[in-house]
Every structure is written in C-alpha cells, then in structure tokens.
C-alpha cells in the first residue's frame, strides 16, 4: 500500500508540475489582454480553474472592460463542469473542518482526473490532495512570473502572444476531442462564433456558440448509444 501511495504522490506531483507550467502562458496572456499583474494573480488565487481564466482573458482581449458581462458569463459557463466534479468528489473526499473550504476550491480537471484514476478510496484522496496542492502553489507562482514577463514584453502582438492565446485554447480543447460528437460541437461552435463576430458586440459570439452545445447535447445529436453507456 505504501509503494502504491508513493506512486500516487509521484503522479500527482508530475501532473501538478506540468499544469503549473501553463501558468506562465496564462499570466503573460492576461497582461497582454489588458489586465494588470494583480488582476492576473487574483484570477489564479480565487477563480483557480484554468479554462475559465483563459476564457475571461480571451473575451477581455477581444472587447475590453465593455465586454465584461460576456467575459463573466463565459468563465462561469466553462466552470459549470466543476459542479459535476464536485458531485463526484464529495463522497470520496468527504471534507471536514477547514478542508470543507479547500477541497471544493481545489476541485479542478487535474485533481479529479488523478483521483479518479485510482481504485482504492484512500489512494483517490491522496491523488486529489497532492495534485490539488501542487497545482495551487505552482499555478499561482507561475501566473505571477508570466504576468511579470508579459508586463516586460510591451508590444504583445509583435511577440505573437495573440497566436499563443489561440494555441493555448487549442491545447485545452485537444484532449476533449475524443468523439464524433465532441468534434462536431467544436467545429459548429467555431463556425458560429466566426460568423457572429462581425454582427455582434465582442464577447457575445462566444456565448452564442454555446447554443451549439445545448442543442447537440439536449438531443444527443452525433452521439452513439455505446458512448452514452460508457459515459453513464
């Protein structure tokens, strides 16, 4: 059991290190979008969920503070999956005392993934806590470093940071494109967002594209029976 435990700790730390490295790109892109260093740090400290943080920064980059409501809505919608994670982790982690605050806060893609990859509940808890702690510490440090780098760069488009932002979103999307349904939603949403860009205020095209997910998800278009069974 203790060898198993050491393996889970190593896995958690490895995932934590790899994820924390993204923080550099997040910090730099946040500053490139017009946020200051402290705003970038508050996002990583309080929001602490990468997809939502990148989304907020992406919408602000397109529309500035005027796109604020759309930026908030985008990050909240991307954070909805954390509700599902919480429901899955709650009976496993069963947090008490101060852990009742920290456990939900650290419930993100990676901590849940490492936890659920283990069989024994005790190891699931180890995976969750090690990964969550490693990412929380690492992500906030690297956000600060990235934001300071972004601040020092100045003209961000000459450095290609706008292209880096698109590549960062693609990196978050890539591992999720595992089914025909996922690919269809991604393609449909990208087309809708592009077509809506000239006619809607900045930020709104991203929200309108979310309708694609609701329509496809409601009627399970492009979905296969086998996948439903596997997902349930």
């Amino acid at each position: 059991m203790s060898a198993e435990r050491a393996r889970v700790v190593r896995d958690g730390l490895a995932v934590g290190l790899a994820t924390a490295a993204y923080g550099i790109s997040f910090g730099a892109l946040a500053v490139a979008a017009g946020l200051d260093v402290w705003q970038a740090c508050v996002l990583s400290l309080v929001m602490f969920t990468g997809g939502s943080q990148f989304a907020l920064v992406g919408v602000i980059a397109a529309g500035g503070a005027a796109a604020g409501p759309a930026a908030i809505a985008s990050s909240v919608m991307l954070g909805l999956r954390n509700v599902v994670y919480g429901m899955r982790m709650s009976p496993i982690v069963r947090p008490t005392g101060w852990k009742r605050i920290v456990a939900p806060w650290w419930t993100i893609d990676e901590s849940v993934a490492v936890a659920l990859a283990q069989r024994a509940p005790a190891l699931q808890r180890v995976g969750f806590w090690v990964t969550g702690a490693a990412i929380y510490v690492g992500w906030n440090l690297t956000t600060l470093i990235g934001a300071l780098i972004g601040d020092a760069l100045g003209d961000t488009s000459a450095w290609g940071l706008d292209a880096a932002a698109a590549a960062a979103f693609l990196g978050l999307l890539w591992p999720r494109l595992k089914s025909v349904q996922a690919g269809a939603v991604a393609a449909g949403a990208a087309v809708v967002a592009a077509l809506a860009t000239p006619v809607l205020a900045p930020g709104l095209p991203v929200l309108v594209a979310a309708v694609v997910a609701v329509v496809v998800g409601w009627w399970n278009l492009f979905g296969r029976r086998a996948e439903q069974a596997a997902g349930a």
Binding site: L80, R81, V83, D162, R176, A190, A194, A213
Partner: peptide, 20 residues
C-alpha cells in the same frame, strides 16, 4: 452531464475562432 461537457468544448472552440 452531457451538456456540461459539450459546453466546455463549444466555448473553447469558439474562443479559438475569435482569437485566431
């Protein structure tokens, strides 16, 4: 659960389109 998963995918894809 399916819609929550697909929302993540749709928003990320839309952000790529707008950003690119």
């Amino acid at each position: 659960a399916r819609i929550a998963d697909l929302l993540t995918i749709a928003l990320l894809a839309a952000l790529i389109a707008v950003q690119a």
